Every structure is written in C-alpha cells, then in structure tokens.
Computed example of a mutant assay.
Amino acid sequence: MIKKHRHFIIYKPYGFLSQFVNNQTKRKKKLLGELYNFPDKTMAIGRLDVKSEGLLLLTTDGKVSDFITTRGNVEKEYYVQVNGEIIPSKIEELKKGVEIGFDGKKYTTKPCKASIIKTPNLPKRAQKIRDERHGPTSWISITLTEGKFRQVRKMTSAVGHPTLRLIRVRVGAIKLEKLNVGEVKEIETLV
C-alpha cells in the first residue's frame, strides 16, 4: 500500500520559528507544532524568519519540498513595508538585482519583479512596528524565484530602505488570501 502524503498551508504568525524542534536551549521559541497537530515527518518548505509572517507551505513529501525550494523556479511573492518613501529608481535597482552578503561572500541577486503598492489590507501584527513620528513608510511587492537567507531584508537594506514588516503572500499559485493569522489548512496538492 502506497502511503499518501499530506500537504498544508499556514499563515505563520510573527514570532514563530518555521520549524518543529527548537535547537536552542537558552530561549524558548514558539514552534509550528503549537498551532496544529501535524503528522510525523511534516516539514516546512522553505522558511520565514521569526520576524516574518505569512504563507508557509508544509508537506510530508520531501520530493515536493525539493522541487519548490530548489528545482522548480517557483515564484514567491512578498509584501514588504520599508522605512522611508521608496522611489521608482530604487525599485528598478531591486528588479535588476542588488549585491548582498551571503555565507560571508558578496552575492548579486537574480532579477526579480518589484513594484510600489498601496498599503495592503492585512491583519495588525502582534508586535507594534512603530508610529508616524518615526517618519514615513512605503509598501512594495517583491517576487523572487530564489530564496537566500534573509534575502528580501538584505535587498531592501541594499537600496537604503530597511524592512519593517515582511509578509509572504504567494508561493507559485497558492495565495495567502482568506487565511487568518495562525490558521492551518490541509490541501490536496502543492504543485
């Protein structure tokens, strides 16, 4: 009998690690297993750092995970609130690729899609970001097919607009819409 793999989508809240086991003994971190009773061998496909929110895919199928993260050129779209009023020339820099640090070396990101967007209708974050007295902010959309460690944060900093809030809203054809923060939904397939 062939074992059927299971697939999930989740709206990862701010403050949660994208994993099921905490390898740190000093600090207690919130883990995905606190949100749902996932089956054994469930793994996150890619990661969102503890300060990032949004769409996270999970599966019991390592082949699907490998395809999405490394071989499939699958698009990942992020809504990013950045410090300051970003101008079109900075968006063009992001689109062409910017130099960031990765694994102790300089790395130029692949060309991507980027645009300035209106403030999206998203749930308030659990931890306040800041208030207006600290100056203006902008919202942008960035769509990548790669995913280096903290890449989006490093990219926005490279053009002079550090990330204040980061939400993944899409992976391939799967969108975040209609999920509440912390909600988990089992789906038939991821690709």
Rank of each mutant, 00 (worst) to 15 (best):
K51D: 13
K96A: 12
K118G: 05
G101C: 00
E85I: 13
L58A: 08
Y79A: 03
K95Y: 07
L56Y: 02
F67V: 09
E85W: 01
P123K: 02
T70D: 06
R125S: 13
V50H: 02
A126N: 12
P111R: 03
F67H: 15
I117W: 05
R71A: 07
K96G: 09
K51N: 14
K106V: 10
N83Q: 15
L57A: 06
S52L: 04
I68N: 06
D61M: 11
Q81C: 15
I91W: 07
N121M: 07
E53A: 06
S65A: 15
N83W: 05
F38N: 12
Y78G: 00
K41N: 14
L57T: 07
V82M: 06
V64W: 00
E53H: 05
T70N: 13
F38G: 11
V98Q: 05
Y36F: 15
G97M: 10
P111I: 09
I86M: 08
Y107A: 03
G54F: 00
E99W: 00
S65E: 10
P123F: 01
D103S: 08
T108C: 04
P39T: 08
I45W: 02
S115W: 05
E77K: 06
R27Y: 10
K113N: 10
N121W: 00
T70W: 00
R27W: 01
E92N: 13
K51H: 11
L48F: 00
V82F: 06
K30H: 14
R71C: 03
L48N: 00
S65P: 05
T25V: 11
P88Q: 03
D103I: 00
E75C: 04
V98N: 07
I87Q: 14
K29S: 14
T59H: 09
